[in-house]
Each structure stands twice: as structure tokens, then as C-alpha cells.
Design a protein around this nucleic acid. Structure first.
Length: 909
DNA sequence: CAGTGAGCGAGCTTCCGCTTGACTT
């Protein structure tokens, strides 16, 4: 039986829509995008690999043509769709009606190559009438919208894959840059810079409790000093971040300090007051719009303490099980049936007096909203109350939040009165003082009865907060029950949290609902940002990277870049602009802008050292922080005046704004940073400690303060079998006993010693060395064994000794036998001339001669091995420093990883 | 930032946005 095949994006959606369409339709999902640019070299088709732009998979020389592949994990799914299509007589592409959805539809068309009629079907709410109407009114794929999506995709690829390598070279291997993540990182860094520049201002005022007399309710009420002799008393917002009064406040306000405040309290001891004015204004507040992705993430963070990613995965489960509508949306629109459901629930639960006469409509506040979905709301044509769902735990709490917000969004405004009362009096010293009291009374709670939004600032008043004031009138006499001075300090701008950073990104039109949570993960995974409680703190690494990007890619990391890009994409989608032209301008530049490619190729010299240096405590202190390969450290002048004579480690988790000069002095006093005390050496009595050094973890002895300057403490790297967490004094003593004298060569009387070095354990006899196979041999190798090793030639000995792991037969091209070997970089196949490393999916067990021939052919296509190797060696020899950077950054990375693990462990305990 | 002695098949890292399982712990 032939059927009509409908393809949507999400499996859960497919199930629901399948139910609406019924017989004759098969509804399947694409599970998101089905094709993409290859994400690594292993996925890049061989035919474009050799092109100069092969790494990008975008032909930048020829109209920016993208080369798409079906990712490995999507291949079987595509096969399934093809099978379903075989028996279909019509195909409906029902992906989301936004830029990405249109592109998915086009990719499906291009990949499935259907021979039957194809329709593009769109809908914005998943209700039976909407779906049935959509089937009846199909359209064609909008090619301009697809063009806009491809432009977006290609731009992001070019940005990410051109700028990231600059960071690998100049900062650290493995780092990344991108249109979204680099701006997100910059926001966090900029906020920290503001905090570092911030200077606190201290100011005082008076707080009093006043007595309106026994016939008033409430009788007592609080008020604050508002003005003295007509000049308003300065409050926090009158001060700038430099700690001084803002120019707009100067001459208008009086800055009360402690002395003045305390003197005033004294002078007001016997003052009586009269009501100078009573101002009453109506208070009215409308409900919040239903949830979209970002507002849900914010509220779940404030009220349930959920991270953005937890919120999304809990919401995903609710969605899959039919409790809520789709959770990745930028729309606040409710379908007609949802409005009805909310309204009937309002009537049932709160009564008709809470129901507005007509439904409320929420227009989107998000500038680049694509509105492919509804708001996030309880699913269905009638809402289940949380109790009716049978949900528990996190799912229950998140559902409850969504349900309450949705119901509240269709309730009446809250109304009431806000009142401001001014009390005047004269001090004993002749000043005219005015106190101010503000109050708010809510006479009808409306939606606030169902839902009150949380606040990010704990001291901020909630929307339903009430303060009642007595019903005073002008001229009434009031007495002060108590007046006291109270000091305040201005606070630096708060760090971003996940939720506030996401909000900021959305406000700036950066990122999409499906990516907000993963943006945070990216910048945390890269080591740019870490979480301290809920706050996002930038690592010094982020300062280096941000500075590089600001200096050399100012347009690309500007906060306006994405918004500008969105405008251009809209023009492309409208058919007014051309994709290749716009990408050409972005990549190669124009009279107006500098192109990305130009910027990358003409970078010039970037002084990596300067880039990673940040003065501490002003430029004159001589002390600066440097981001080294092993983490941040301080450098400063020593007693002899050597400007870099003093150094000290900076803990990875010390927030940059806490690194003051005082803190620096403290760190200089204990430059090594964390060390683990292992105990005393039984012979020398010296304290033995374990530390992390630039070559990894090691143990050393602590020399007494009165030891001669020339004395060097013994040291020893931990063996691979040991770790800083588990190393014992016994281990340390063993390590410090090295080098061990193995014996004397009877031939020439030279001493043979065993020790641990850069390349692992080895024997040394004068300037002649031999590697040892295991670290254990350091302590066990005998003179006979040592002499046997020395009897063998130095270089070839080991290489010849290592037998091939597997023999595969002869290569069809060279005719030479092919074997699998294990080398420095892992397992590889070789025909004697060419060597090719096994890829991620190859194993020694599974590899065949055919696969080996494939790998060797690929390798051969890149040219002779010796030539490239030599060139590499020459380069390395010329720029020794650079080579060192490359090797060591790996160490740094793993060290950082370890540090993170340790931190996490510490938090747990 | 602890201070040491080779000579060897390199090859890969990375973007943003759409979507879920398949993994392991």
C-alpha cells in the first residue's frame, strides 16, 4: 500500500502528528540536520582533502561552494528514510518553518532524491486543525531562505576554522574561537575588567522608625533620610565605578559620611516631624509572557537552582512524554486552544474575576525571533494541573513552573497603590531634614496570585512585595521612635551567571534557543570560564585570547557583529542580496571592511609574550601576571632590582579581580603554590614535599633557611605509577635516592648510573646513554644487564627489536609487504617507504590489507614522507622556542584537566 | 616555575545549529 511520507524534525513531534493524520500517512523525523560540513579531517571526502581549502570544506576560491557529508551516525537513519520513501507516492517535508528548518528540508530533498511529488508543509502549532490545514496548503521550498542558512553555516565555519588555528599558534593548542563563543567569552572578560577597575564608594544615610500615633494602622513605619537643607542625600546610584560622585550628581546631592551621619543622629534627638507631602499613585502590573527557552532557563535557575543544561534535559523529557510543548523556541505565542485551556483553568482555579475579558496576546520581544514554534506551555487542549500529571522530582517542579507561568499569562493585571510620604523636621544644629517613606499596597493581586517572577539580585524587591504605610495627610504630626546612622558601600557589577549571560546573548541576538546551554559548556570546556558557585569567572587564559581577538579581529568580536550578520541574512532570505557576494566581503574584504582571510594571512608578528602579560596594581607596580604554559603566574622585581627576579604561581581558581597587590605579595611569599607535605627524611631530617612543576609532579626536599645559597635541593619526578594524590614518603625517598650507581664498567672504569630523565628512565656512562624499558629497572637493573645494554648499538637497537604487530600481505601499489607497527604516535601501517597512522575507527584486530592500502594511498598522495619530515625538522631547529611551545602545551592541557578533576573532588568532599 | 640524554612514520585540534539516543558511571 502506498502512503504519503511526512518528515518532521523531532521524533516526538512525528508521533503526535502521526496521530492527527492517521491512515495513509507515515510520519518520520529527520532528527535535526541530516547533513553538514565535515567536522574533522577523518570525515572530509578524499577528493577535496588535497585542495587548499579542503580543511574548510568550503571552496573559497570558487563561489564559496560548501561540501556536505552525511555524518556517520546519520547514515543508517538516511537509509531508513530512503526505504520509507520507496513505498511512498508523495513526500511532505514538514521541518520547522525557520532558516534551519528550510535548509533541513532542502538537504532531505537533495539527499533522498525523491521521484514522487514533493511538498513543503509548514505549521506553527501542533494541533489537529493546524496540521490538517498544513497538509491542505503546501508550498515549495524557499530557496532564498536556504541560501541564507548556508551563508550562516559557511560564515561560522570560516570564522571558527580560520581563527582557531591562530590561537593554536599564538596561545595554546586546542583552543577555539567562533562568532558566538568568542563574544560570550568577551562579555565575561569585560565584566571582570569592570570589576577590576571598580573603586568602592562609601556613603551614609539615616534610617528611622516613625510613629504615626495610636489611631493609625500601622502605627509604626520605616523611613529613610532623603534630603538635608534641600539637597538630596547621595545614594549608591549617584556614584560612578571610580568611586567618585557622578558628574550628573555633583552640586545636586550631598554626600553624607559617617561623621556627618552620626552628628545628624545626635542633632535629631529631640526633633519632631510633620508630614510635608503624601503622594499616591496607582500601581499596575501585567503578567509576564509565557516561557520561551531563555526565560525558562532564567526562572529555572532562579527558583529551582537548575543549570541551563539540566533545565533543557528535564524539559526534553517532559516534551517527549507529552507534558509540554517544544522547549527550544524563541516565541511567546500561545495557540488558540492553549489560550482557551489557560482561561478555563483560570476560571476554575481562581474564579471569573481573575479572567480578563479578552485573551492576552504576547508579541515577540526577541528581535531576530524566527517563531517556528509556540511558547513553552503545558501540552494539549486542556492543561493538566501538576498534581494530575503524576510527575515527581525535577520534572514535577519544572512542569509546575511552566504551568503556573502559562496560566498566569492569561490572568488580570495586579493593581494597587504606591504611596510616597515625606516627613520634615529641623535638627538641633539648624538643618532642615526630610525623611521619605515609600509603600505599596496591592488591592487586587490578579496574576500575582498564581506566579511571581524571581530576581537575580537577592536584595531586589519582588513584584508582589508590599509595604503598608499609615494613612497620613499633609500637616499631620509624627514623632521618631528611633533614628540611626547606617553605612553603605557601592558594589561592583555582578558577575554573569549562566542565566544572565544567556539573557545578555539573547538581547544581543547572539546564539539560538538550541545552543544557549551548549555555549556555556563550550567556554567552560575550553578553560576560558569556570563556575564559582553560580557565577561565571573568566580564567586568565580568556583575557589573553580576548585581547588577541580584540587587537586583531576587532570587527569579528564586536558585540554588534552577529546582529549585523542577521540583517544581511534577512536580505539574502528576501532575495535582495547574494550569498557568494556577502561571503566574499566577509572573507576577502571590501572597501568597507577588512576580510577575515586577509586578517589571518597578514597577521604580522603577534608578540605572544606581551599578549599574555597583564600588569597588576597599575602599570607602576612592576608586578605583572603572565599566562604561561603551565597556568598563570606572577612576575616582579626582586631585591637586587632584577625586574623579573621574583616569580610565584597563581592558583587557577583565583578570580582575576581578587588578584590585588596585597594578594600578590602573599603569593610571592609562597611562590611554589600548593605543596603536599610528605614528612621528614629519616636521614637528613629535611621536610619532603610533593609539588606540581613544569615537568609535572615531583618531590623535593625543603632546605633550611640558613642553607648556603649554592645548595640545591634534591628532586625527582614522580613515576608514571604514582600521583600527587597518592604519593607516600617511601616513594619520595626512593625517587630522591636517584641517580643510583649501578656499577663500574670494567673496561674503562667509568661509573654507570640509572636515572629518570626527559625521555624516561635511562642509564648514563659519561656522555653515553641507553634507555631503560621500565621505570622499575631504575631500582633493579644489575651491572650485567647494564653492560649488555651498552653492548648493543645505541639507536637501532630498540627499533629493530620491536616486531610488527601484524602482517597484512603485500600492498597492491608498491608490491611491498605491509605490516602494522606501534610507534610514538600510536599504531600505523607501513610498506617500508610510507607510513600511515591508523584512524579513529581502525583497530589492529580489524584492519585488513584493503584498508591499509587505502590509508597508504592517501598518505602517498600527500607526497614523500622524508621531504616533509626534513622541512619540519629544519623549522623546528630554527625556532627552538616555538617547538618547545608545541610540545609542552600538551602537558599543560592535561595538567589543567587534572586540576579541574581535583577541584571537583575537593568540592565534593 | 625542578634542570636532563636519543632520535624517531605525524596528524589533529577548531565553528554554529538542528535533533536524539548510545555510550559509561
Amino acid at each position: 500500500m502506498a502512503h504519503k511520507l511526512v518528515i518532521v524534525e523531532s521524533p516526538a513531534k512525528a508521533r503526535t502528528i502521526g496521530g492527527y493524520l492517521g491512515e495513509g500517512y507515515v510520519v518520520e523525523s529527520s532528527i535535526g540536520h541530516i547533513r553538514d560540513l565535515p567536522n574533522s579531517a577523518a570525515d572530509t571526502p578524499a577528493k577535496i582533502k588535497d585542495k587548499p581549502w579542503g580543511r574548510l570544506a568550503v571552496d573559497v576560491e570558487n563561489g564559496f561552494v560548501p561540501y556536505y557529508v552525511v555524518p556517520r551516525d546519520k547514515k543508517s537513519h538516511i537509509a531508513k528514510l530512503k526505504t520509507l520513501l520507496k513505498d511512498a507516492d508523495e513526500l511532505y517535508l514538514a521541518t520547522d518553518e525557520d532558516r534551519e528548518g528550510e535548509a533541513i528540508a532542502w538537504h532531505l530533498l537533495d539527499e533522498l532524491k525523491p521521484k514522487v511529488p514533493v511538498h513543503r508543509m509548514v505549521f506553527h502549532e501542533i494541533t489537529k486543525p493546524a496540521i490538517l490545514a498544513a497538509v491542505e496548503n503546501p508550498r515549495q521550498i524557499n530557496d532564498d531562505l536556504v541560501e541564507a542558512q548556508e551563508a550562516r553555516r559557511i560564515l561560522d565555519r570560516l570564522y571558527g576554522y580560520e581563527v582557531s588555528p591562530v590561537l593554536w599558534k599564538k596561545v595554546m593548542s586546542g583552543l577555539s574561537a567562533g562568532r558566538v563563543q568568542s563574544v560570550a567569552t568577551r562579555l565575561v572578560v569585560d565584566r571582570e575588567r569592570d570589576r577590576m577597575k571598580f573603586r568602592v564608594a562609601s556613603y551614609w544615610d539615616l534610617e528611622g522608625t516613625f510613629d504615626a500615633g495610636s489611631d493609625h494602622d500601622p502605627r509604626m513605619f520605616p523611613a529613610k533620610l532623603h534630603s538635608v537643607d534641600g539637597a538630596r542625600v547621595a545614594r549608591g546610584s549617584d556614584f560612578g565605578s571610580d568611586g567618585a560622585l557622578k558628574s550628573s550628581a555633583q552640586g545636586k546631592v550631598v554626600h553624607v559620611d559617617r561623621t556627618r551621619a552620626e552628628a545628624l543622629v545626635e542633632a535629631l534627638r529631640d526633633t519632631s516631624y510633620d508630614v510635608r507631602s503624601v503622594e499616591s499613585k496607582p500601581y499596575r502590573r501585567s503578567p509576564y509572557a509565557p516561557f520561551r527557552t531563555t526565560t525558562l532557563q532564567q526562572e529555572a535557575s532562579r527558583k529551582l537552582g537548575m543549570s541551563a543544561s539540566v533545565t533543557m534535559s528535564v524539559a526534553q523529557r517532559l516534551y517527549e512524554n507529552g507534558f509540554i510543548t517544544y522547549m527550544r523556541t524563541d516565541s511567546t505565542t500561545l495557540s488558540g486552544s492553549a489560550v482557551n485551556a489557560a482561561r478555563s483553568q483560570v476560571r476554575e482555579l481562581y474564579g471569573a474575576e481573575y479572567l480578563p475579558d479578552s485573551p492576552r496576546v504576547y508579541a515577540s520581544k526577541v528581535k531576530n525571533a524566527q517563531e517556528a514554534h509556540e511558547a513553552i506551555r503545558p501540552a494539549g487542549d486542556s492543561f493538566r494541573t501538576p498534581a494530575q500529571t503524576g510527575l515527581t522530582g525535577e520534572q514535577f517542579r519544572l512542569y509546575e513552573l511552566i504551568w503556573m507561568r502559562t496560566v498566569a499569562s492569561q490572568m488580570k493585571d495586579a493593581v494597587g497603590q504606591s504611596v510616597s510620604i515625606r516627613l520634615g523636621g529641623a535638627s538641633a544644629t539648624g538643618e532642615d531634614v526630610v525623611f521619605s517613606a515609600t509603600g505599596r499596597v496591592i488591592t487586587f493581586h490578579g496574576f500575582l496570585k498564581a506566579y511571581v517572577e524571581g530576581t537575580d539580585d537577592a536584595s531586589a524587591a519582588k513584584d508582589d512585595a508590599e509595604t503598608r504605610l499609615p494613612a497620613l495627610t499633609e500637616g499631620d504630626a509624627v514623632s521618631a521612635a528611633s533614628v540611626s546612622a547606617s553605612g553603605h558601600e557601592t558594589k561592583p557589577p555582578a558577575r554573569y551567571t549562566e542565566a544572565t549571560l544567556i539573557k545578555e546573548l539573547e538581547d544581543r541576538e547572539i546564539g539560538r534557543p538550541s545552543t544557549y546551554a551548549s555555549i556555556i559548556k563550550t567556554i567552560v570546556d575550553r578553560g576560558y570560564v569556570y563556575k564559582k558557585g553560580t557565577a561565571l569567572v573568566p580564567a586568565w587564559l580568556a583575557f589573553s585570547v580576548t585581547r588577541l581577538l580584540e587587537d586583531h579581529f576587532p570587527r569579528q568580536v564586536s558585540y554588534e557583529f552577529t546582529a549585523g550578520m542577521e540583517d544581511v541574512l534577512d536580505e539574502i532570505a528576501a532575495g535582495h542580496k547574494d550569498r557568494a557576494t556577502e561571503l566574499g566581503e566577509f572573507y576577502y574584504g571590501s572597501e568597507r571592511v577588512q576580510g577575515l582571510h586577509t586578517l589571518v594571512t597578514e597577521l604580522g608578528e603577534i608578540d605572544a609574550r606581551e599578549l599574555a602579560t597583564f600588569p597588576i596594581g597599575g602599570p607602576d607596580s612592576g608586578i605583572h601576571l603572565r599566562v604561561g604554559r603551565y597556568g598563570p603566574y606572577l612576575e616582579g622585581p626582586d631585591e637586587e632590582g632584577n625586574p623579573t627576579g621574583k616569580r610565584a604561581n597563581v592558583p587557577d581558581d583565583l578570580p582575576p579581580d581578587e588578584l590585588t597587590l596585597e594578594k600578590a605579595a602573599e603569593l610571592f611569599a609562597n611562590p611554589a603554590g600548593e605543596e603536599i607535605d610528605l614528612g621528614q627524611h629519616p636521614d637528613t631530617g629535611l621536610r619532603i614535599v610533593a609539588k606540581n612543576g613544569r615537568f609535572g609532579p615531583y618531590v623535593t626536599e625543603v632546605l633550611p633557611d640558613d642553607a648556603p645559597k649554592s645548595a640545591r635541593p634534591r628532586t625527582g619526578s614522580l613515576l608514571k605509577s604514582m600521583s600527587l594524590e597518592t604519593v607516600t614518603l617511601e616513594d619520595a625517598l626512593k625517587l630522591l635516592s636517584l641517580p643510583r650507581v649501578v656499577g663500574v664498567d670494567p673496561e674503562n672504569g667509568e661509573e654507570i648510573t640509572a636515572q629518570n630523565g626527559r625521555y624516561g628512565p635511562y642509564l648514563k656512562k659519561g656522555s653515553d646513554s641507553r634507555s631503560l624499558a621500565t621505570e622499575e629497572q631504575l631500582f633493579t637493573v644489575t651491572l650485567e644487564e647494564a653492560l649488555a645494554l651498552y653492548a648493543q648499538p645505541k639507536q637501532r637497537g630498540r627499533a629493530a627489536a620491536a616486531p610488527p604487530l601484524k602482517e597484512l600481505g603485500n600492498d597492491p601499489v608498491s608490491g611491498q609487504p605491509v605490516v602494522v607497527k606501534s610507534g610514538r604516535f600510536g599504531e600505523y601501517v607501513t610498506d617500508g617507504e610510507y607510513n600511515a597512522t591508523l584512524r579513529k575507527d581502525d583497530t589492529v584486530e580489524s584492519i585488513t590489507i584493503e584498508r591499509a592500502a587505502e590509508l597508504l594511498a592517501e598518505r602517498r598522495a600527500r607526497g614523500p614522507a622524508k621531504k616533509t619530515a626534513k622541512r619540519g625538522a629544519k623549522k623546528a631547529a630554527k625556532k627552538t622556542t616555538k617547538k618547545t611551545t608545541g610540545t609542552k602545551s600538551t602537558t599543560r592541557k592535561s595538567a589543567a584537566k587534572k586540576a579541574t578533576t581535583k577541584k571537583a573532588a575537593a568540592k565534593k568532599s
